[in-house]
Every structure is written in structure tokens, then in C-alpha cells.
């Protein structure tokens, strides 16, 4: 009896130690990146050799980084708009649909997530070459939309599943046409979902790297792509500065999404 109790205590302590270690390991790499961005030296090292904001100053002086930043924003906003439009409409259509066409939509939308990004990247590169779309922002936006749409779509499916569809009947019944009823009755009920979906789509695009690497050209390269090329040439703390910005943007987006809904729900949508 006593030995059993003892064993349970040991187990409980080991369990606690286990997940707290993992917790630390999950966040440690990000903290390392942020710490090295305040480095005073010209090489990254952890712990950093002296603290300064010099590399932050460099960032705002660098045309290359600022251009990449603009590219990332253009692609991110483009992806958010296209993916949100497609995902919201598709999920809404599926709710109204009583045939079985809708049932192929979910697997069709999901499959791209299971294809390694390298394969998607080369496939789309060949395709865009064939159709003559090379070098345009659209190549990256469309590729990122392939990954962002499933997120928006499943967020919206989950939101719509909690929506009381009798309200739509009531709106039609009171004289609201299809567009009016969507704007006045459906949208106000699901706007949080649309917002979170769009936000996640933006973040996915902002952070995506492999497809962007294949599809971008010198004039359209995004932050992760430029960071990648920089890392391979020199390990100066500039990449850490940029990474810190990206981490902070994701953090900000996560906070916004959590305010709009809740963390548990957002987490489940990401799986």
C-alpha cells in the first residue's frame, strides 16, 4: 500500500517534470532567437556577447529587408483575402448544399496539406512556367492560398456548425434576399470566425518558406526566403532581428485571435 502510494508520487513528479521540460524546450529556441537579436557583435552567439539595438537600426536602414517586408505583406494580405473569400464561400455553400458534392470538398481542400511543400513548390513552379505566370506575386499568393484555405474552411465549418440556421430561414421569410440575409444575419454571427480565419491565413502566408523559395524571384522574395539566403551566407544577428519581428507578429495575431474567440478553440482549429 505504502509502496504503491510512493510509486504514484514518483510518477506524478516525473510526469510534471516531463511536461515542464518540454514546455521550456518548445519556447527556448524562440527565446534564443529573440535574445541574439540584441547582440552587439557581428556574429550570432548564445548567450549574446553584449547587448545593443544596433541591428534593429540596421534593419530600418536596409532596403533589401524593407522590400522583403513589403513583399511579405503584399503576399500575406493577398493570401488572406483570397483564402478567406474561397474558404468562407465554400463552407457556406456546403452548409446550404443538400447534395453530396460538398462531401468531396473537404478531402479535396485538405490533401495539399499532406503533400511535402517541396513537391508542391516544384509542381507549381513547372505549372506557372507553363501558363506564363512566373515572377508575379500571384504565384506565391496562389500557392499560399492552397495551404491557407483549408484553415479558413475548417474554421468556418466549425463556426457554421454552431450557427442556428433557422435564423437564415427567418431572414428569407422576412423578405431578405440571399445577399441581404448573408450580410445582415449570417455575417454578424460568424464575423469572429471570419476574422480568425483571415488572420491565420495571413500568418500562414507570412511564415511559409519552402514554396516561396521556389516561386519567388529577386523582386518578390519574402522575409523567410531572404532570411534563408542570409543564413546560408553569414550568421549575423540581422536574421534574429527579422525573426523577432515575425515572432512578435505571430504573437500579436494569436492574442487577437484569442480575444476574438478563445485559445482552446484556436488551437483545435490548427490541427
Amino acid at each position: 500500500m505504502t509502496s504503491n502510494l510512493h510509486r504514484e508520487t514518483v510518477e506524478a513528479v516525473a510526469f510534471r517534470a516531463g511536461y515542464l521540460t518540454l514546455f521550456a524546450l518548445m519556447l527556448l529556441p524562440l527565446l534564443v532567437v529573440i535574445a541574439t537579436s540584441f547582440s552587439a557583435g557581428s556574429r550570432i552567439a548564445f548567450p549574446p556577447d553584449g547587448l545593443s539595438l544596433v541591428w534593429y537600426g540596421e534593419f530600418f536602414q536596409s532596403r533589401r529587408w524593407l522590400e522583403a517586408f513589403t513583399n511579405s505583406l503584399v503576399v500575406g494580405v493577398g493570401t488572406a483575402v483570397v483564402a478567406t473569400g474561397l474558404g468562407v464561400m465554400g463552407a457556406f455553400g456546403q452548409e446550404l448544399d443538400d447534395g453530396s458534392l460538398g462531401t468531396i470538398l473537404a478531402p479535396l481542400v485538405l490533401v495539399p496539406l499532406l503533400i511535402p511543400p517541396v513537391i508542391l513548390g516544384i509542381t507549381l513552379l513547372m505549372y506557372f512556367n507553363e501558363v506564363g505566370l512566373r515572377g508575379s506575386y500571384w504565384t506565391i499568393i496562389l500557392a499560399h492560398t492552397l495551404w491557407a484555405t483549408p484553415l479558413v474552411y475548417f474554421v468556418m465549418r466549425s463556426v457554421f456548425s454552431r450557427f442556428d440556421w433557422q435564423q437564415l430561414d427567418a431572414a428569407h421569410d422576412l423578405g431578405a434576399g440571399p445577399i441581404q440575409s448573408f450580410v445582415h444575419v449570417v455575417l454578424p454571427n460568424v464575423k469572429h470566425g471570419v476574422f480568425v480565419g483571415a488572420l491565420l491565413a495571413f500568418i500562414i502566408s507570412l511564415q511559409e518558406f519552402v514554396m516561396a523559395l521556389f516561386l519567388s524571384t529577386a523582386s518578390t522574395q519574402t522575409i523567410p526566403v531572404l532570411a534563408w539566403t542570409e543564413i546560408r551566407q553569414a550568421l549575423d544577428p540581422m536574421v534574429s532581428v527579422v525573426s523577432t519581428f515575425l515572432i512578435l507578429i505571430s504573437l500579436g495575431a494569436l492574442v487577437l485571435a484569442v480575444i476574438a474567440t478563445n485559445l482552446e478553440w484556436v488551437s483545435k482549429q490548427l490541427s
Partner: peptide
């Protein structure tokens, strides 16, 4: 969730100094 929403360039790169 935070690492998930961070680019894999950073997630990889972080291991270099570590």
C-alpha cells in the same frame, strides 16, 4: 501554438546557436 505560427526558417535557425 506559437512555434507553429513561426516560420520554419526561424525554427531551424534557432538550433544553430544552440
Amino acid at each position: 501554438v506559437l512555434p507553429l505560427l513561426t516560420t520554419l526558417v526561424i525554427r531551424t535557425y534557432a538550433f544553430d546557436p544552440l
